Each structure stands twice: as C-alpha cells, then as structure tokens.
Amino acid sequence: MPTPSDMSTHSDTALLDALQHQVAVFARRAEQSRLGGVGQARNSMDRAAYLLLNRLDQEGPMGVKALACGMGIDSSTVTRQVAPLVDAGLVDRATHPEDGRAVVLELSERGRARLEEVRASRRALMAMVTEKWTDEERDAFTALLTRFNTSLAEITALAPGGPAPS
C-alpha cells in the first residue's frame, strides 16, 4: 500500500494540509455544537444515541452483534450505549422470532417519535447552515461528504484492530 508521501506532489501537499485542517475544524465545531439542531430539541440527544436509533429506524429490529457490526463498533459498546435507551423507553428488547433465546433490539414508538423530533431540529440547523447554498452545492457537498466518510470507514477497517465499515 502506498504511503501518503508516495501519493502527493508539492501542490497536493498544500491541498491535503488544507483538507486535514478543515476536517479538524469541522470535528471541533461539530463537537462544540454537537450538530444538535435548533429549538427545544437542540443538543437533546447525543451522537451515539442518534446513530443507534437512526440505524434501528432504517434497518429494523436486529441483534446487538448485527448492530455493532453495522456501526463498526464493539458489541460491548453497543450494549453499554443501548442500556439507557432501553431505560428511557426509546428502544425495546424483544425475543428473536426464529430463536427464542436471542434478543433483538427495536425502536419503540416513543423512540421513533423522539428520533423524528431530533431529526427535524437537525434538519432545521442544516437548512440554516446551507441557506445561502444552491441546491447543486448542497447535493455536491452531501455526495462528497458521504464519499469521504465511506472512504474513511474503509481505510479504518483495514487498519489492524480497526472497526468494520459502517
């Protein structure tokens, strides 16, 4: 596998330095704001809870192992992060329909309503942030950020001890 120095020319170095700096700034700003949206729901759900609820909403009920694998994190981490969501009534534990010994996690009605409230708040924030952008700029940014995250997940998965891609 080529090293970053093998892949860069002098002009690439400046561009890659600018890119890594902007990613670092973005990460800091995202943590400061937690990209939590606007209004009453602002910062009312942490990133881990949002991502877990979102995955259950998009993919349906699943076991801890499948959820962990899909998110690229350890099963023990999922178990620890899901516990308060179960306690809050946002996630239900149910018996697996084909294997009565196995447990599946599913989004509760309360969880679905709460997730939609947070999504609406976050959509409002994204609308504010990109309000002066054209539709084409929003589309391009979303496509490129998705591609960036996918590539980062793939590279991370290749690293020794790295998580599986999400």
Results as ranks from 00 to 15, higher is better:
Met71Asp: 00
Gly89Trp: 14
Val82Gln: 09
Thr77Phe: 12
Thr95Met: 01
Arg101His: 10
Glu109Ser: 11
Val118Ala: 03
Val86Pro: 15
Asp87Ile: 04
Val86Lys: 15
Leu105Gly: 08
Ala83Lys: 14
Arg80Trp: 10
Val78Arg: 04
Cys69Trp: 11
Val86Cys: 06
Val104Ala: 00
Pro61Trp: 00
Asp92Asn: 15
Asp74Trp: 09
Leu90Ala: 03
Gly111Met: 05
Arg110Glu: 14
Gln81Gly: 02
Arg112Asp: 04
Val91Leu: 14
Met62Asn: 03
Glu116Val: 04
Ala102Pro: 05
Val103His: 11
Val91Met: 00
Asp57Trp: 09
Ala120Lys: 15
Gly111Thr: 09
Glu109Ile: 13
Glu106Asp: 08
Pro61Thr: 02
Ser108Lys: 10
Pro84Lys: 08
Lys65Glu: 08
Ile73Thr: 13
Arg110Val: 14
Glu109Met: 13
Val103Lys: 14
Ser76Cys: 08
Arg122Pro: 12
Val78Ala: 00
Val86Asn: 06
Ala66Glu: 11
Leu90Trp: 14
His96Gly: 06
Gly70Leu: 06
Gly63Trp: 03
Leu67Arg: 07
Arg112Ser: 12
Val118Gln: 07
Leu107Asn: 05
Val86Ser: 07
Thr79Glu: 08
Lys65Leu: 08
Ser121Gln: 09
Met71Arg: 13
Arg122Glu: 09
Arg112Cys: 02
Ala66Tyr: 01
Asp92Glu: 15
Asp92Phe: 11
Arg119Gln: 07
Gly100Ala: 13
Arg110Gly: 11
Leu115Cys: 02
Cys69Arg: 12
Val104Asn: 09
Glu98Phe: 09
Thr77Pro: 04
Leu90Ser: 03
Val64Phe: 08
Glu109Pro: 15
Ile73Met: 08
Pro97Thr: 07
Val118Glu: 07
Asp92Ala: 15
Ala120Glu: 14
Gly89Met: 06
Thr95Ala: 15
Gln58Ile: 02
Asp57Ile: 01
Ala88Ser: 14
Asp74Gly: 00
Val118Ile: 13
Val64Gly: 07
Arg119Ser: 02
Ser76Met: 11
Pro61Met: 00
Glu59Val: 06
Gly89Val: 11
Ala68Gln: 05
Arg93Met: 11
Asp74Gln: 13
Ala66His: 01
Ser121Val: 10
Ser76His: 10
Ala113Ser: 13
Asp92Cys: 09
Glu106Asn: 01
Arg122Thr: 08
Val82Gly: 05
Met71Asn: 03
Val78Ser: 00
Val82Tyr: 11
Pro97Ile: 02
Arg93Ile: 04
Leu105Lys: 11
Glu59Met: 11
Gly100Asn: 10
Ala113Leu: 12
Val82Lys: 14
His96Asp: 15
Gly89Pro: 12
Asp57Glu: 09
Glu106Tyr: 08
Glu116His: 15
Cys69Thr: 10
Ala83Arg: 14
Val103Arg: 13
His96Pro: 02
Val82Phe: 12
Val64Trp: 06
Pro84Glu: 09
Leu56Glu: 00
Leu115Asn: 04
Ser76Pro: 00
Arg101Pro: 01
Arg112Thr: 10
Val78Gly: 09
Gly111Ser: 05
Arg101Ser: 11
